[in-house]
C-alpha cells in the first residue's frame, strides 16, 4: 500500500539519511577508539613493541590502495554527471578490484600472524603479557570490523554498478551512487586513523 504514499523524490533527504548513518558508524568505531586510547595509555611500552611486528610495507600499500579506490569512486560521480556511463562503470570496477586487493593483502597479513600463533585466545599470545594481548585483541577486532565494512561496501558498490548498467542510476538520478561513495569514503577515513594507530606507533 505504499505506492500512493511515496511519489516524490527527495535527494537531499536520502543524502541526509546517509550522513546520519555515517555518524552512527563513526561512533561505532569511536567506541573502539576510546578503548584503544585507554589501553594504550595504560600499556605504552607493550603497544609500542607489538606495533613493530606489523608490516609497515603491507600497511602502507593497503593505505594507498584504499586512497586510490576512494578517488576512483569519487571520479565515477563526475563521470555520471557528465553522462559518461562507460567511464563511470570502469571507475567503479576499479574501486571494486582495489577493495578486493585490500582484502587479499589483509588475508595474507592475518595469515602471517596466525602462523606465528598470534591470535586472540592463543597460548603463545597469552604468554607475552597483558599489553600484547590487548594490542592484538584490538588489532584483530578493529581491522576485522573494518574489513567487514569493506565487504559491505563492496556489495553496495556492486549493486550500484549493476543499477548503472541497467540505467536505473542515470545522470538525472544518481543519489544512490553518491551514497555508496559516501560509505566507501567513510571506510577509507576509518582506515586513515587505524593505520597510524596500529602501524606507526613504533
Amino acid at each position: 500500500m505504499n505506492t500512493i504514499l511515496v511519489t516524490h523524490r527527495d535527494d537531499l533527504a536520502s543524502k541526509t539519511g546517509m550522513w546520519l548513518f555515517l555518524f552512527t558508524e563513526m561512533l561505532l568505531f569511536g567506541g573502539l577508539f576510546i578503548v584503544y586510547s585507554v589501553y594504550r595509555y595504560r600499556n605504552p611500552i607493550a603497544f609500542h613493541q607489538a606495533a613493530h611486528e606489523l608490516s609497515i610495507i603491507i600497511g602502507t600499500i593497503n593505505t594507498i590502495i584504499l586512497l586510490i579506490s576512494s578517488t576512483t569512486i569519487a571520479m565515477s560521480i563526475t563521470a555520471i554527471q557528465k553522462k559518461n556511463k562507460k567511464l563511470a562503470l570502469l571507475l567503479l570496477g576499479t574501486t571494486i578490484l582495489l577493495g578486493l586487493a585490500f582484502l587479499v593483502n589483509k588475508y595474507f597479513e592475518w595469515g602471517e600472524h596466525f602462523k606465528e600463533h598470534i591470535y586472540p585466545g592463543s597460548a603463545v599470545l597469552a604468554s607475552r603479557g597483558h599489553g600484547d594481548v590487548l594490542f592484538y585483541g584490538l588489532y584483530f577486532f578493529m581491522t576485522g570490523l573494518h574489513a567487514l565494512h569493506i565487504i559491505i561496501g563492496l556489495i553496495f558498490i556492486l549493486v550500484v554498478a549493476v543499477s548503472i548498467f541497467r540505467e536505473k542510476i542515470n545522470p538525472e538520478n544518481y543519489v544512490l551512487l553518491e551514497n555508496s561513495g559516501l560509505y566507501w569514503h567513510l571506510v577509507d577515513l576509518i582506515w586513515i586513523f587505524l593505520f597510524p594507530l596500529f602501524y606507526l606507533i613504533t
Binding site: 561513495g181 586513515i192 586513523f193 593505520f195 597510524p196 606507526l200 606507533i201 613504533t202
Partner: peptide, 26 residues
C-alpha cells in the same frame, strides 16, 4: 611520533571529507 601521525591523519581526513565527500560543496 604519535601526535604527528595523528595530525597528518587529521589533515588527510579533512581532504577526504571536504573533496571526496563533497562537504565543501554541500
Amino acid at each position: 611520533t604519535v601526535t604527528i601521525a595523528l595530525i597528518i591523519a587529521a589533515v588527510k581526513s579533512s581532504f577526504v571529507l571536504s573533496i571526496f565527500m563533497h562537504l565543501k560543496f554541500e
